[in-house]
Write a protein that binds this DNA or RNA. Structure first.
Lengths: 351, 351
DNA sequence: CTGAAAGCGCTTACAG
DNA sequence: CTGAAAGCGCTTACAG
């Protein structure tokens, strides 16, 4: 005797002695089903360990999910931001037919208003989910609140904003990233050597991640037996001239062995070192983008601590996909690996 | 006037004035279509830039693709091999409903026959594609040939076999991996220091990748200004006793500053260093698995050069998925990143 | 509160 | 060589 078990909903309907429409109703927790019927169906679903077929679901449904992505536009680190976008496109090509529509919204990292105005347009678009690089704190907070009100899910990449709980955060553990640099220093320095930690800042917000890096860095060093002097400075430099004169001055008074740039502008220091022909100073930075890479290649930057930009985008998209389409639970915090990039391994880094 | 364009095949059929069955025939390059009809349909397909809906395709098709994976079973590096399997499972959960069936075949890395016999069972299973870690060269070659005859696609992970062309190879560029270690040595050593490169071998085959690492390592050092003495040795050690007595002897005659273990057994040297209390010798190894990690954590291993095991599995599965289901072209060689893992970044490495 | 029916964009026998 | 029809496992009006 061969009982061919019917597929999903049909089989549930058969067992419960109802129509598939009714099954569908309880499956989606819609109203209009007698309590008793509902319970019966629910228990059958449990019994069968029923898993809906996502293909059939998407094919049958007219519903299109709209996701928006808010990301810094072409700027000096432009190449970097292509990363997440590429990652999203890659994800899209793999999950493409699932009825997803993506819109990209670029803002100027130096222009608070451009961020603000992009959020306004996004709010008008009736998006289901957004991916955002929260460069401006207050504006992001406001945006997040209004998203929540409208039941728009948001995912943060790159950094987080305190007290705001996104569907998911995808980015580094910056404290630990600082420790990684500290650990490298163990090999690069000897007891007594001087270190300069530089925060070359243009943007006013998201300084927090820089602080965390610094804390991790210092914590590691204080635990280790590398007793070196760490000097941490903010340089509010607009261009190379300011950096140069600052460093000229600083280095004339301090015998620095290593400079650690806590944001993505290590290339500025590298340029300085190249201009002056200073080969004896080690340089560690953050961020995988062309300007940094050029100096990594020619040896003026020794190490770059990075996260894969493409992966961030891919995972952010996946978070929304999992939430809306696959209806699976999404991890609240997804720390990305803290990668150590050198002139010898950067080539395969994007893979 | 609102012309609602019909969806894919239907619209093609309408334009070509044929039935969708005929369209389907040319879409799949099947016989039994008049040349003229075929050309007409083909041109319409091109015109529309028609892309089949993969969801509908999989849903309608009864075809189930069967993939087999041939991978070392629990051995001393056991934890490592969970990686690819987890990766495949992860991919499966994302592409699960696409009608794929996976079978796992484990062999003993020390037992050529176990590999051989697994390939035999796999060949009987009428698989569509296989993922294999080609530990034994001749046996793999034989297996690959017979796969080709049966039109079974195969993907290599971890290493390649010369003159055999898989659908895709997913693994490291070992020459470059050796260079990465060389580059690290630049920071860890000073001119004149001695380095010992160790190949602690049990298995007879796949030595090639070790040779390539060594070449890369030496090439880098010879290009750099770190003029150190490199001694490269094979140790055919079965256990700790042999390693210990070998190292006792070697180190009594040489003042080694750094040991580079080219395969995944750095933990054996680390154990030796720990036993002897030798903290002054730096140790670099390969492979992300528990035994190595323990010594990374306690400081006896300084750096591990790794590739993400999970990612390998994921990508290998994806290669087969792309080939069979999405019908997209697959990259012949997919080099994985050469990751530098330390005690401070290993935690987030698996993410 | 419930069900019959059409449809998503394909594939697969089957009939001619 | 070609087409009509059923079906994959769901969703979505619509009717009662």
């Amino acid at each position: 005797m061969k009982i061919v078990e019917l597929s999903g909903v049909k089989e549930i309907a058969r067992r419960a002695n109802v129509s598939i429409a009714t099954v569908d109703r309880v499956l989606h927790n819609r109203t209009g089903v007698a309590q008793k019927t509902k319970e019966k169906i629910l228990s059958i679903i449990k019994d069968m360990d029923y898993k809906p077929n996502i293909l059939a679901k998407r094919l049958a449904s007219k519903r299109i999910y709209k996701f928006g992505i808010l990301i810094p536009q072409e700027c000096s680190e432009a190449e970097y931001w292509n990363g997440p976008v590429s990652g999203i496109k890659e994800a899209l090509s793999e999950f493409g037919d699932f009825g997803v529509e993506i819109s990209y919204h670029f803002f100027d990292k130096k222009d608070r208003d451009s961020f603000k105005s992009q959020t306004e347009t996004m709010l008008k678009m009736q998006l289901d989910g957004v991916i955002v690089v929260p460069v401006f704190i207050d504006e992001t907070r406001d945006f997040a609140m209004r998203c929540s009100e409208r039941r728009v899910q948001f995912v943060f990449i790159e950094s987080e904003i305190p007290q705001i709980s996104p569907l998911s955060y995808i980015g580094q553990d910056y404290y630990q990233a600082g420790r990684v640099v500290g650990n490298l220093c163990q090999y690069l320095l000897r007891p007594g050597d001087d270190v300069l930690v530089l925060n070359i800042s243009k943007a006013p917000d998201i300084q927090e991640s820089l602080q965390e890096k610094l804390m991790g860095f210092e914590a590691f060093l204080s635990e280790s037996d590398v007793h070196c002097k760490v000097d941490s400075l903010d340089v509010d430099a607009k261009g190379m001239d300011e950096i140069s004169s600052f460093l000229d001055h600083y280095l004339s008074e301090n015998s620095v062995k290593l400079i650690y740039v806590t944001n993505s502008r290590a290339y500025m220091v590298a340029k300085y070192l190249e201009d002056r022909g200073f080969k004896h100073i080690r340089l560690v930075g953050n961020g995988y983008h062309d300007k940094n890479l050029n100096y990594l290649k020619n040896g003026y930057i020794d190490f770059l601590i990075c996260q894969k930009p493409l992966e961030q985008g891919y995972k952010a998209f996946l978070a929304l996909y999992e939430h809306f389409i696959a209806k699976r639970k999404v991890e609240r915090t997804q720390y990305t690996p803290i990668d150590i990039v050198t002139k010898e391994n950067y080539k395969y880094y994007e893979n």
